[in-house]
Simulated scan of single mutants.
Amino acid sequence: MDWLERSATLRQWSRGGTRAPHKPLLFLYALGRFQENADGELRYGAVEEDLARLLAEYGPPNRTSPAYPFHHLVSDGVWEVRTERGPGSPGSGVRELRETGAAGRLAPDLRAALRREPALLGRIARVLLDLHFPPSLHGDLCEAVGLELEEPETGRRPEVRRQRSRRMRDLVLTAYEYRCAFCGYDGRIGTVPVGLEAAHVRWWAFGGPDDVDNGLCLCSLHHKLFDKGVLGVGDGHRILVSQRFIGHSTAAHEHVTALAGRPLVGPQPGTRPVAAAHRAWHTSQVFHGAPRPATAP
């Protein structure tokens, strides 16, 4: 059985680029727990809070219950659920899962495959990460689910067929003249820029093209906050700051909340700015909550 292919084709509700990473998040969490204890199971009542926190931090802006993937991942053949009555999930309702003592774990055949080939766990995890989340979040997400991944093996065939363009970083950083589009940071060591990254506005994992009008040059901090939904780009290419972001320090004000309503820095004349369709996708699928009002100059 090709577990990588099965992991790459989880059935998810989808419409017009809508993010639905509920199953991948549960799958990653289960892989992390398997790595810790290959014989353990995940009782819904005990892991509900962990799963809810993962969905809140890495899921779509709209709130959803962890009961949904706990029940529905069974249909993909990688997960099983048992209750006090025996095999089978009682349904996707929180109350049903709690009252029946529902517990889940990776499917028996998958557990056996992971025991035979330990490296398979890391390859499955990387497929899930690449297909559903931007690279800036991979490290944080692995830490959140308790996954320890080794560096990918060299010479192995790519697990994800679509490849990122290596030229995009250079094109985007040049378009924005090697300055963060949010704060203007332009640090270098000699002639080499440091702490500047090319961010996809519409995530590569969700069909975002490797084009300049889908990119922003961002410093490492603002790239992370952009991909976490704290920052966004609104009409008139002005910066959005989520009302859900809380920071009382001077640094939090200067580096985040004071950005609300400011125009982007760049791109240089003659370069296409971020396309409206990509901005709209990020605002609906990544940006959290309502934007703060513009900060008075």
Rank of each mutant, 00 (worst) to 15 (best):
66 P>V: 09
266 G>V: 11
270 G>A: 01
45 G>H: 13
281 W>G: 06
172 V>D: 00
102 A>L: 02
150 E>S: 12
81 V>W: 09
282 H>Q: 10
115 R>S: 10
20 A>L: 08
47 V>G: 00
296 A>I: 03
159 E>H: 13
273 P>G: 11
291 P>K: 06
115 R>K: 13
267 P>H: 06
192 V>D: 10
224 K>D: 04
252 A>S: 15
283 T>V: 15
251 A>H: 08
106 L>I: 10
149 L>T: 02
244 R>W: 00
140 D>E: 15
161 R>I: 10
209 P>N: 08
194 V>A: 11
40 G>C: 09
70 F>T: 04
216 L>T: 06
35 Q>I: 01
237 H>T: 01
193 P>M: 13
17 G>V: 12
113 A>S: 13
194 V>F: 12
163 Q>A: 14
185 Y>Q: 08
173 L>T: 02
154 T>A: 14
81 V>R: 06
218 L>S: 10
258 A>T: 00
260 A>C: 06
29 Y>E: 05
44 Y>S: 05
49 E>P: 05
210 D>Y: 10
198 A>R: 12
52 A>T: 12
9 T>H: 15
211 D>P: 02
244 R>D: 12
295 T>E: 13
281 W>F: 15
134 P>Y: 11
296 A>V: 14
203 W>I: 06
295 T>D: 07
3 W>A: 01
195 G>Y: 07
14 S>L: 05
285 Q>H: 13
50 D>Q: 11
263 P>T: 12
129 L>T: 08
237 H>E: 11
167 R>S: 14
4 L>A: 04
46 A>E: 15
200 H>Y: 08
211 D>L: 12
89 S>D: 03
72 H>I: 02
145 V>H: 07
59 G>N: 08
224 K>S: 10
239 I>D: 00
242 S>D: 13
136 S>L: 04
84 E>V: 04
145 V>Q: 01
243 Q>S: 11
88 G>H: 01
235 D>T: 06
261 G>I: 03
208 G>I: 01
212 V>N: 12
165 S>A: 14
27 F>W: 06
288 H>P: 01
204 W>G: 05
119 A>V: 11
4 L>P: 00
149 L>Y: 04
265 V>S: 03
7 S>A: 15
271 T>D: 06
117 E>P: 01
4 L>T: 11
41 E>H: 12
199 A>L: 08
3 W>H: 13
208 G>R: 12
101 G>W: 07
19 R>N: 07
207 G>F: 00
181 A>L: 04
